[in-house]
């Protein structure tokens, strides 16, 4: 069994504790307007044209984005990084795209990682079936769980999918005994109006269990915009500016009322 992965990041330090290897799995059922990994949306390998310059001459080559990895491939990479993972009490994170879209591979990979002593994390949009989440709970130490908007209609507008299942899954994981970090993308004009933020804080507070360890506020950025051009996807966020530092600081204080650690960034 193999998984389609579009990027492997070593010295990943923002996707869970310590130094980690993050595997970005290809394919996502959501279509968030602000997505900074548009190459992770399609569940198939894609070709992009990469141009490299040698002196004045340019060489263009078609490069395949998305490669199939076996569980053994995953373990080989982790073995190379073992010294850093051990030293930092880090581990492995499966992100995406939406890793749950390749559930069977994800399960096998997580299981093998656990058996080899690695701390495992899954960075998920929450958009998958109940049963799938239940199955991976035993082989996952940490869930990085996105909450983008509480209003269903608005959620559909922004991401293309309903949030009903997502919020149900969130409640289940809160009672799984595993660690959860909630990740809230802060997208100016989309989900940061005072009314929504108030509701969100209330929601996090009312659902809180021992499992909730941290809230990550992820400020919108445009670093992914050049990728849109490369993948020939229209970019809809040209007119949106990243939130100011002071604003993020305000939000950090606002959310700290939930009673867990709040961090700007991953």
């Amino acid at each position: 069994m193999k998984g389609l992965i579009f990027s492997v990041k070593r010295y990943s330090i923002h996707d869970g504790p310590g130094i980690r290897v993050t595997f970005f799995m290809k394919g996502c059922p959501l279509n968030c307007m602000w997505c900074h990994n548009p190459e992770g949306i399609s569940p198939f390998p894609e070709n992009v044209i990469i141009s490299d310059k040698v002196g004045e001459r340019e060489f263009s080559n078609s490069k395949e984005v998305g490669k199939y990895y076996s569980v053994e491939n995953i373990l080989e990479i982790l073995e190379k990084e073992r010294v850093f993972i051990n030293q930092s009490k880090g581990g492995v994170t499966f992100s995406g795209g939406e890793p749950m879209l390749q559930f069977e591979f994800l399960f096998e990979a997580l299981k093998a990682c656990k058996e080899n002593g690695y701390h495992t994390a899954v960075d998920t949009s929450g958009y998958s079936s109940f049963e799938n989440y239940k199955s991976i709970i035993p082989v996952t130490d940490l869930f990085l769980f996105d909450i983008k908007h509480l209003d269903e209609a608005r959620h559909i507008e922004l991401t293309g999918v309903s949030n009903i299942g997502i919020l149900d899954n969130y409640r289940i994981l809160l009672n799984s005994g595993k660690d959860i970090m909630v990740r809230v993308p802060v997208i100016p004009g989309f989900n940061d109006d005072p009314d929504h933020l108030k509701k969100l804080k209330q929601f996090l507070l009312s659902t809180k269990t021992e499992s909730l360890k941290k809230i990550n506020l992820l400020p919108f950025h445009k670093i992914g915009s050049s990728k849109y051009k490369r993948f020939n996807i229209p970019y809809k966020m040209d007119n949106v500016e990243p939130p100011a530092k002071g604003r993020m600081q305000e939000l950090k204080e606002f959310f700290s009322e939930v009673g867990v650690k709040v961090k700007i960034g991953g």
């Binding site: 130094i19 010294v83 930092s88 961090k263 960034g265």
Partner: peptide
């Protein structure tokens, strides 16, 4: 940016110690 917070200090420290353990 690699030095932005306490977590990144911990990771850099681990990075150095890892190199030294090798």
């Amino acid at each position: 940016q690699f030095f932005e917070d306490e977590d990144s200090y911990d990771c850099l420290t681990a990075l150095i110690r890892s190199y030294f353990s090798l």
